[in-house]
């Protein structure tokens, strides 16, 4: 079942001196339970795509269809935890905003905190947590509103390399065990191959779909292990070529 569908979506930004076509005639969809990655050259409008999906901006033409409600959870590059709230109050932020801070939802969040090792830290402030734990807290905050679709905007890029690999495994495991549908935007080819069921390759600006690639590494459970698969480097080369325009 489809969760998201983009039909001929275009977006033009206007400024004083010029108009910029950020996205042009974009078509792709995301099915329930799927993990889809979007990769593209830097500055190609990847983040614009997420803003369109989360309805923060409207498309100039075309249609963004969210099936089964428009409840999306947005996870940004930096964790954006509020320093003046403890972890518990941070992860409840979305529920507060949507006025859904019921006892039932509070219990749901409590469960997430317990399941993913942040329960003992619920009264701690973000500054007291490591980068990996902060990112996990940010993920739980995103999951708290029980979204149908998770949008991940380069959620690991602010972390150093070693932490990034660990947090990547961690986030992937949580998303899978919560059976969430996810759409990840990244410029990191290896990250896309190791995480995604499907990879949407975008062209340079104006972004449009260049290719859709399936890594077929699902038999390996952990993203970190997938990086060791013999297939991995072949796929990396292929995607690298796609990105740099050497294939038709």
């Amino acid at each position: 079942m489809k969760v998201l569908e983009l039909k001929n979506v275009s977006k033009v930004f206007y400024s004083k001196t010029q108009e910029t076509q950020a996205v042009s005639n974009l078509n792709f969809d995301v099915n329930e339970g799927e993990f889809v990655a979007i990769i593209g050259p830097s500055g190609c409008g990847k983040t614009t795509v997420l803003s369109l999906i989360s309805k923060l901006i409207q498309p100039t033409s075309g249609e963004v269809k969210l099936y089964g409600g428009s409840n999306v959870g947005y996870m940004l590059q930096r964790d954006q935890l509020f320093e003046w709230r403890n972890i518990e109050r941070n992860v409840q932020l979305g529920l507060e905003i949507q006025r859904k801070l019921t006892e039932e939802n509070k219990r749901y969040v409590e469960n997430l905190l317990k399941k993913y090792g942040l329960w003992e830290f619920r009264k701690h402030y973000p500054a007291e947590l490591s980068g990996g734990m902060r990112q996990r807290a940010a993920l739980i905050r995103t999951l708290a509103t029980n979204p149908d679709l998770l949008l991940l905007d380069e959620p690991f890029s602010a972390l150093d390399f070693q932490t990034r690999l660990d947090v990547c495994d961690d986030v992937y495991a949580i998303i899978r065990s919560e059976k969430k549908t996810a759409l990840l935007v990244t410029h990191d080819i290896s990250e896309a191959i190791s995480l995604a069921d499907r990879i949407v390759v975008l062209t340079e600006r104006p972004a449009t779909v260049k290719a859709i690639h399936e890594p077929r590494l699902n038999h390996i459970a952990q993203p970190l292990k997938r990086r060791e698969s013999p297939d991995f480097s072949k796929q990396f080369e292929l995607l690298h070529k796609y990105l740099h325009g050497e294939t038709q």
Binding site: G73, L76, Q80, L93, Q98
Partner: peptide, 14 residues
């Protein structure tokens, strides 16, 4: 004030 945090809140429907 941090624009990214405002973006996060808007994405939550604030």
């Amino acid at each position: 004030t941090d624009k990214e945090k405002a973006l996060l809140l808007r994405s939550m429907g604030a």
